[in-house]
């Protein structure tokens, strides 16, 4: 039980994620979390105006059920299966974030500097979350998938487009962290 309550090592987590992907494929579906964003647009009635959202969203109820499960899983893991939320980060990472103005690094899942109610009540804080979320939603649909659909499923099935997409994910991530973060947070 103690091992479960501690953070899980990568060599346990990675294969478990692959099994989740495989089981969804075995159920005749696929592992793609970002598709739910499109489904949510369709449920909101976007299909009346934009053809891209004009599809039978009810066929995607299984995936929304996975989302519901994921929320419940997050709740269970955080409240009942964790003794600590401290993250064992590289001290260099903590130091670099401290220079960008981040305190208490690694003591929660997300930084208060971005996700606390105080942070989102500032124009800058709110803008960061909105711009970040917008880019994720726009980019993932443009690229036809996200980490689950491209990095895990696409690369596991040896698909070249997914490799290009994952290279893009990293290109974007590196630009953000190395070039833009020093401008955004200083």
């Amino acid at each position: 039980m103690e091992a479960i309550l501690q953070p899980w090592p990568w060599y346990v987590s990675g294969p478990l994620i692959a099994m989740i992907m495989f089981i969804l494929i075995y159920f005749g579906k696929t592992f793609g979390m970002s598709s739910n964003l499109r489904t949510l647009c369709a449920i909101g009635g976007a299909g009346k105006k934009v053809a891209f959202f004009n599809f039978d969203w009810k066929s995607q109820r299984w995936n929304l059920t996975v989302v519901l499960g994921a929320v419940i899983g997050g709740f269970i893991a955080h409240h009942y299966l964790s003794v600590t939320t401290n993250i064992d980060l590289n001290p260099k990472t903590v130091e670099a974030l401290s220079q960008l103005g981040f305190e208490n690094t690694g003591q929660s899942l997300l930084p208060d500097e971005l996700y606390s109610w105080d942070a989102i009540l500032s124009i800058k804080g709110l803008s960061i979350l909105i711009i970040g979320g917008f880019l994720v939603g726009f980019g993932t649909r443009y690229a036809g998938g996200c980490t689950s659909g491209h990095a895990i499923t696409g690369l596991s099935s040896l698909q070249l487009p997914s490799l290009v997409a994952v290279i893009g994910f990293f290109l974007g991530g590196l630009i953000m962290i190395h070039l833009l973060f020093p401008l955004i947070f200083s």
């Binding site: 979390m33 994720v136 996200c146 689950s148 893009g168 974007g172 953000m176």
Partner: peptide, 17 residues
């Protein structure tokens, strides 16, 4: 699309799952 996604992923720290 991948690059735009990566920018947002690194900024918000959250991908769609």
């Amino acid at each position: 699309g991948g690059t735009l996604f990566g920018l947002g992923w690194a900024l918000s720290g959250a991908c769609p799952g």
